[in-house]
Amino acid sequence: MEYLKVFVTGGIICAIAELLIDKTKLTSGRILVFYVVTGCILGGLGIYEYIENFGGAGATVPLTGFGYNLAKGVMKEVDEAGFLGIFTGGFKSAAGGIGIAILFSLIACVFFKPKSKG
């Protein structure tokens, strides 16, 4: 049951993205930006928490979850560090993910060459 909720939540979030791609011709870069910002705003409004409570990883694995994480991080930092937390909270919460992605990108460059398609 738990996994079904995860599946449906994640599935719907991805399906909405596909609908946007088909209907609006938005490129994937724009979709990702839209998702992060949306997740962050919904996080700030306290709405995304409900989605996470319901859908678990279905809500955190899509990029909206990354945005939600930024909102959570900044609010936590404001609680702890006050005004300056506004500027550091987002980056702090994203640091791990971005750091890993940079490292893995570089490692991939060591081992792989560009490949042709088709």
């Binding site: 791609i21 490129t27 994937s28 560009p114 490949k115 042709s116």
Partner: peptide, 18 residues
């Protein structure tokens, strides 16, 4: 060349777009 043109005008070849 498909690859040099994609690189200049569109997206990286390994990007998972449709």
């Amino acid at each position: 060349h498909f690859c040099s043109a994609e690189k200049q005008f569109r997206f990286p070849l390994a990007l998972g777009n449709q």
